[in-house]
Design a protein around this nucleic acid. Structure first.
Lengths: 105, 105
DNA sequence: CGAATATATGTCAGATACGACATACTCGTC
DNA sequence: GACGAGTATGTCGTATCTGACATATATTCG
Protein backbone atom coordinates (compact mmCIF):
# COMPACT_ATOMS: atom_id res chain seq x y z
CA UNK A 1 0.00 0.00 0.00
CA UNK A 2 1.58 3.16 -1.18
CA UNK A 3 1.95 5.76 1.53
CA UNK A 4 1.37 8.70 -0.73
CA UNK A 5 -2.07 7.49 -1.64
CA UNK A 6 -3.05 6.95 1.97
CA UNK A 7 -1.87 10.43 2.83
CA UNK A 8 -3.89 11.92 0.03
CA UNK A 9 -7.00 10.17 1.24
CA UNK A 10 -6.52 11.43 4.76
CA UNK A 11 -5.68 14.90 3.54
CA UNK A 12 -8.76 15.06 1.38
CA UNK A 13 -10.95 14.87 4.45
CA UNK A 14 -12.35 11.42 4.03
CA UNK A 15 -14.28 9.76 6.75
CA UNK A 16 -17.31 7.72 5.91
CA UNK A 17 -18.75 8.22 9.29
CA UNK A 18 -18.91 5.20 11.52
CA UNK A 19 -16.11 2.64 11.24
CA UNK A 20 -13.83 3.54 14.10
CA UNK A 21 -10.47 2.62 12.66
CA UNK A 22 -7.99 4.78 10.84
CA UNK A 23 -9.49 5.02 7.39
CA UNK A 24 -11.40 1.80 7.77
CA UNK A 25 -13.06 1.88 4.39
CA UNK A 26 -15.05 -0.98 2.99
CA UNK A 27 -13.85 -2.35 -0.34
CA UNK A 28 -16.57 -0.44 -2.23
CA UNK A 29 -15.73 2.78 -0.45
CA UNK A 30 -12.06 2.30 -1.20
CA UNK A 31 -12.79 1.57 -4.85
CA UNK A 32 -14.97 4.65 -5.06
CA UNK A 33 -12.35 6.93 -3.57
CA UNK A 34 -9.58 5.52 -5.75
CA UNK A 35 -11.74 5.96 -8.80
CA UNK A 36 -12.19 9.58 -7.84
CA UNK A 37 -8.46 10.04 -7.30
CA UNK A 38 -7.82 8.62 -10.76
CA UNK A 39 -10.18 11.17 -12.32
CA UNK A 40 -8.60 13.98 -10.30
CA UNK A 41 -5.12 12.96 -11.40
CA UNK A 42 -6.26 12.79 -14.98
CA UNK A 43 -7.78 16.24 -14.77
CA UNK A 44 -4.44 17.57 -13.61
CA UNK A 45 -2.68 15.72 -16.42
CA UNK A 46 -4.99 17.24 -18.99
CA UNK A 47 -4.51 20.72 -17.60
CA UNK A 48 -0.73 20.49 -17.27
CA UNK A 49 -0.28 18.86 -20.66
CA UNK A 50 -2.02 21.88 -22.20
CA UNK A 51 0.16 24.22 -20.17
CA UNK A 52 -2.88 25.77 -18.49
CA UNK A 53 -3.13 27.30 -15.02
CA UNK A 54 -5.90 26.42 -12.61
CA UNK A 55 -7.24 29.91 -13.06
CA UNK A 56 -7.48 29.41 -16.81
CA UNK A 57 -9.24 26.09 -16.40
CA UNK A 58 -11.62 27.69 -13.92
CA UNK A 59 -12.61 30.21 -16.59
CA UNK A 60 -13.17 27.43 -19.10
CA UNK A 61 -15.38 25.59 -16.62
CA UNK A 62 -17.23 28.63 -15.30
CA UNK A 63 -15.83 28.02 -11.85
CA UNK A 64 -13.11 29.32 -9.58
CA UNK A 65 -9.42 28.54 -9.10
CA UNK A 66 -10.01 27.21 -5.60
CA UNK A 67 -12.60 24.77 -6.88
CA UNK A 68 -10.22 23.52 -9.55
CA UNK A 69 -7.56 22.99 -6.88
CA UNK A 70 -10.06 20.93 -4.91
CA UNK A 71 -11.04 18.94 -7.97
CA UNK A 72 -7.42 18.00 -8.57
CA UNK A 73 -7.04 17.11 -4.90
CA UNK A 74 -10.13 14.88 -5.05
CA UNK A 75 -11.48 16.82 -2.10
CA UNK A 76 -14.50 15.32 -0.38
CA UNK A 77 -16.55 18.32 -1.47
CA UNK A 78 -16.05 17.38 -5.12
CA UNK A 79 -18.39 14.96 -6.84
CA UNK A 80 -17.61 12.54 -9.64
CA UNK A 81 -20.23 14.41 -11.63
CA UNK A 82 -18.17 17.57 -11.36
CA UNK A 83 -14.96 15.80 -12.36
CA UNK A 84 -16.56 14.09 -15.34
CA UNK A 85 -18.25 17.28 -16.51
CA UNK A 86 -14.96 19.13 -16.18
CA UNK A 87 -13.07 16.52 -18.19
CA UNK A 88 -15.67 16.45 -20.95
CA UNK A 89 -15.69 20.23 -21.10
CA UNK A 90 -11.90 20.27 -21.41
CA UNK A 91 -12.19 18.01 -24.41
CA UNK A 92 -11.77 14.51 -23.02
CA UNK A 93 -13.96 11.87 -24.63
CA UNK A 94 -16.33 9.53 -22.90
CA UNK A 95 -13.98 6.70 -23.90
CA UNK A 96 -11.00 8.37 -22.28
CA UNK A 97 -12.95 8.95 -19.08
CA UNK A 98 -14.00 5.30 -19.08
CA UNK A 99 -10.46 4.11 -19.55
CA UNK A 100 -9.23 6.25 -16.67
CA UNK A 101 -11.92 4.81 -14.43
CA UNK A 102 -11.12 1.28 -15.54
CA UNK A 103 -7.44 1.84 -14.70
CA UNK A 104 -6.70 1.41 -18.38
CA UNK A 105 -5.65 4.94 -19.19
CA UNK B 1 -30.62 9.28 -33.78
CA UNK B 2 -32.74 6.73 -32.03
CA UNK B 3 -36.11 7.99 -30.90
CA UNK B 4 -36.23 5.95 -27.75
CA UNK B 5 -33.13 7.61 -26.43
CA UNK B 6 -34.44 11.08 -27.12
CA UNK B 7 -37.68 10.25 -25.37
CA UNK B 8 -35.79 9.00 -22.34
CA UNK B 9 -33.83 12.20 -22.13
CA UNK B 10 -36.93 14.29 -22.30
CA UNK B 11 -38.74 12.06 -19.83
CA UNK B 12 -35.90 12.24 -17.34
CA UNK B 13 -36.48 15.93 -16.89
CA UNK B 14 -33.40 17.24 -18.63
CA UNK B 15 -33.02 20.85 -19.41
CA UNK B 16 -29.71 22.53 -18.92
CA UNK B 17 -31.24 25.88 -18.53
CA UNK B 18 -30.77 28.34 -21.32
CA UNK B 19 -30.55 27.01 -24.89
CA UNK B 20 -34.02 27.54 -26.21
CA UNK B 21 -34.35 24.63 -28.61
CA UNK B 22 -35.81 21.23 -28.03
CA UNK B 23 -33.08 19.49 -26.05
CA UNK B 24 -30.39 21.71 -27.48
CA UNK B 25 -27.54 20.12 -25.58
CA UNK B 26 -23.93 20.93 -26.23
CA UNK B 27 -21.75 17.97 -27.16
CA UNK B 28 -20.33 17.73 -23.62
CA UNK B 29 -23.78 17.85 -22.10
CA UNK B 30 -24.98 15.17 -24.48
CA UNK B 31 -21.97 12.99 -23.70
CA UNK B 32 -22.57 13.46 -19.99
CA UNK B 33 -26.21 12.48 -20.20
CA UNK B 34 -25.51 9.46 -22.39
CA UNK B 35 -22.79 8.34 -20.03
CA UNK B 36 -25.32 8.53 -17.23
CA UNK B 37 -27.89 6.59 -19.24
CA UNK B 38 -25.31 3.88 -19.85
CA UNK B 39 -24.69 3.52 -16.12
CA UNK B 40 -28.40 3.49 -15.42
CA UNK B 41 -28.98 0.77 -18.01
CA UNK B 42 -26.13 -1.25 -16.58
CA UNK B 43 -27.56 -0.93 -13.09
CA UNK B 44 -30.82 -2.36 -14.36
CA UNK B 45 -28.96 -5.16 -16.12
CA UNK B 46 -27.13 -6.08 -12.94
CA UNK B 47 -30.34 -6.09 -10.94
CA UNK B 48 -32.38 -8.06 -13.45
CA UNK B 49 -29.62 -10.57 -14.10
CA UNK B 50 -29.64 -11.38 -10.39
CA UNK B 51 -33.41 -11.67 -10.42
CA UNK B 52 -33.75 -8.89 -7.85
CA UNK B 53 -36.62 -6.43 -7.40
CA UNK B 54 -36.02 -2.71 -7.01
CA UNK B 55 -37.17 -3.03 -3.42
CA UNK B 56 -34.52 -5.64 -2.73
CA UNK B 57 -31.81 -3.53 -4.32
CA UNK B 58 -33.01 -0.56 -2.27
CA UNK B 59 -32.44 -2.58 0.89
CA UNK B 60 -28.95 -3.54 -0.25
CA UNK B 61 -28.14 0.10 -0.94
CA UNK B 62 -29.80 1.52 2.15
CA UNK B 63 -32.20 3.46 -0.02
CA UNK B 64 -35.78 3.29 -1.22
CA UNK B 65 -37.54 1.63 -4.16
CA UNK B 66 -38.48 4.96 -5.64
CA UNK B 67 -34.88 6.10 -5.64
CA UNK B 68 -33.79 2.89 -7.37
CA UNK B 69 -36.46 3.46 -10.02
CA UNK B 70 -35.07 6.94 -10.56
CA UNK B 71 -31.53 5.63 -10.75
CA UNK B 72 -32.51 3.20 -13.48
CA UNK B 73 -34.35 5.98 -15.30
CA UNK B 74 -31.26 8.23 -15.09
CA UNK B 75 -33.51 10.86 -13.55
CA UNK B 76 -32.01 14.32 -13.27
CA UNK B 77 -32.13 14.01 -9.49
CA UNK B 78 -29.61 11.18 -9.47
CA UNK B 79 -25.91 11.79 -9.66
CA UNK B 80 -23.20 9.75 -11.28
CA UNK B 81 -21.78 9.38 -7.80
CA UNK B 82 -24.92 7.62 -6.70
CA UNK B 83 -24.95 5.31 -9.73
CA UNK B 84 -21.29 4.40 -9.32
CA UNK B 85 -21.64 3.80 -5.59
CA UNK B 86 -24.69 1.66 -6.24
CA UNK B 87 -22.91 -0.44 -8.86
CA UNK B 88 -19.85 -0.95 -6.67
CA UNK B 89 -22.05 -1.92 -3.74
CA UNK B 90 -23.88 -4.44 -5.90
CA UNK B 91 -20.57 -6.07 -6.74
CA UNK B 92 -19.49 -4.45 -9.98
CA UNK B 93 -15.79 -3.75 -10.28
CA UNK B 94 -14.14 -0.46 -11.08
CA UNK B 95 -13.06 -2.01 -14.38
CA UNK B 96 -16.62 -2.94 -15.30
CA UNK B 97 -17.85 0.54 -14.47
CA UNK B 98 -15.10 2.00 -16.61
CA UNK B 99 -15.93 -0.22 -19.54
CA UNK B 100 -19.60 0.75 -19.36
CA UNK B 101 -18.66 4.42 -19.39
CA UNK B 102 -16.26 3.87 -22.28
CA UNK B 103 -19.05 2.16 -24.27
CA UNK B 104 -16.97 -1.01 -24.11
CA UNK B 105 -19.21 -3.04 -21.87
C1' DC C 1 15.49 38.77 0.60
C1' DG C 2 10.94 40.79 -1.88
C1' DA C 3 7.57 40.74 -5.66
C1' DA C 4 4.96 38.18 -8.82
C1' DT C 5 2.56 34.18 -10.17
C1' DA C 6 0.60 29.64 -9.13
C1' DT C 7 -1.60 26.56 -6.10
C1' DA C 8 -3.81 25.21 -1.65
C1' DT C 9 -7.10 25.72 2.35
C1' DG C 10 -11.19 27.59 4.99
C1' DT C 11 -15.72 29.28 5.02
C1' DC C 12 -20.33 30.43 3.54
C1' DA C 13 -24.95 31.24 1.19
C1' DG C 14 -27.53 29.30 -2.38
C1' DA C 15 -28.29 25.23 -5.31
C1' DT C 16 -28.85 20.40 -5.99
C1' DA C 17 -29.09 15.58 -4.54
C1' DC C 18 -30.63 12.43 -0.99
C1' DG C 19 -33.92 9.00 1.26
C1' DA C 20 -38.60 8.68 2.44
C1' DC C 21 -43.34 8.61 1.85
C1' DA C 22 -47.62 8.72 -0.79
C1' DT C 23 -49.65 7.52 -4.79
C1' DA C 24 -50.15 6.14 -9.65
C1' DC C 25 -49.27 3.14 -13.24
C1' DT C 26 -48.40 -1.81 -15.47
C1' DC C 27 -48.84 -6.45 -16.02
C1' DG C 28 -49.90 -11.17 -14.59
C1' DT C 29 -53.35 -14.43 -12.68
C1' DC C 30 -57.69 -15.49 -11.30
C1' DG D 1 -62.92 -6.77 -13.68
C1' DA D 2 -60.32 -7.29 -9.04
C1' DC D 3 -56.39 -8.40 -6.85
C1' DG D 4 -51.29 -8.45 -6.01
C1' DA D 5 -46.48 -7.67 -7.05
C1' DG D 6 -43.44 -4.72 -9.30
C1' DT D 7 -42.27 -0.35 -11.10
C1' DA D 8 -42.84 4.73 -11.89
C1' DT D 9 -43.80 9.65 -10.51
C1' DG D 10 -44.43 13.68 -7.34
C1' DT D 11 -43.23 16.09 -3.30
C1' DC D 12 -40.76 17.25 0.90
C1' DG D 13 -37.23 18.10 4.76
C1' DT D 14 -32.51 17.57 5.29
C1' DA D 15 -27.79 16.80 3.77
C1' DT D 16 -24.28 17.49 0.61
C1' DC D 17 -22.22 20.01 -3.32
C1' DT D 18 -21.04 24.34 -5.72
C1' DG D 19 -18.97 28.73 -6.95
C1' DA D 20 -17.12 32.61 -4.74
C1' DC D 21 -14.33 35.04 -1.79
C1' DA D 22 -10.55 35.63 1.53
C1' DT D 23 -6.35 34.11 2.75
C1' DA D 24 -2.35 31.06 3.21
C1' DT D 25 1.35 28.61 1.21
C1' DA D 26 4.57 27.37 -2.54
C1' DT D 27 7.65 28.46 -6.39
C1' DT D 28 10.20 31.35 -9.58
C1' DC D 29 12.97 35.25 -10.78
C1' DG D 30 15.40 39.48 -10.05
Amino acid sequence: MDTTKTDRLKAAGWRTGDAADFLGLSPEEAAFVELKLALADYLRDVRVSHGWTQTHVARLLGSSQSRVAKMEAADSSVSIDLLVKALLTLGASREQVGRVIARAA
